[in-house]
């Protein structure tokens, strides 16, 4: 990829990640990935089943909320129950070793002991349903999830990240909106 110089008349907005800056960003990212494979994803959390978000979301075009069905109804975007997995996997890909593991949990009437990946501190109230109803795409805060295997957290959720968006969208920035 070659770096293009921006046209002289064009104003470069540092917040606008298009054009020149995007090229720079992509080049940097490509270099980083080349030098440190795995740097793009934060530390992966081991999970009992090698679930792939990519297969379900990108390849088979499942909506996030098919499995995380309470994201628009509740504070939490739930982890689906074994029953939800078995809705499809009773008949789909039943010969795969990872799917067989689900069946084992299902037959043993045991929940799958997923490990928590994305955790916000105790003093933060983060209602998923407000974000969904405001039309924020899931990938805004969970970038790369559609390409990931088991869940990843590629973004650090600092308060600045939340505030940028809240200011831009002119929604409440009162402390008590999220901290109580």
């Amino acid at each position: 990829m070659t770096r293009k110089r921006p046209p002289a008349a064009r104003r470069i907005d540092p917040l606008d990640a298009s054009g020149y800056l995007r090229d720079v960003a992509i080049t940097c990212l490509a270099l980083t990935l080349l030098l440190f494979p795995g740097a793009a994803f934060a530390e992966t959390v081991p999970q009992p089943i090698a679930y792939s978000h990519k297969i379900h979301v990108t390849d088979y075009k499942l909506n996030c909320r098919f499995c995380h069905s309470s994201a628009n109804k509740s504070q939490y975007a739930n982890i689906p129950s074994v029953e939800k997995c078995m809705m499809c996997h009773r008949s789909i890909a039943t010969d795969r070793p990872e799917v067989k593991k689900i069946a084992r949990y299902w037959n043993g009437k045991k929940p799958i002991p997923w490990n928590k990946v994305i955790d916000v501190p105790n003093f933060v109230y983060f209602p998923h349903k407000k974000m969904v109803s405001a039309g924020i795409p899931c990938l805004t805060c969970h970038p790369g999830m559609d390409q990931a295997g088991t869940a990843v957290q590629n973004l650090e959720f600092g308060m600045g990240f939340c505030m940028d968006c809240h200011r831009k969208k002119k929604v409440s920035i009162d402390c008590w909106t999220c901290h109580y």
């Binding site: 501190p121 003093f123 009162d174 402390c175 008590w176 901290h179 109580y180």
Partner: peptide, 9 residues
């Protein structure tokens, strides 16, 4: 108009 208390601050 509430007197808010922010614990993390």
């Amino acid at each position: 108009g509430l007197n808010a208390m922010v614990y993390n601050r």
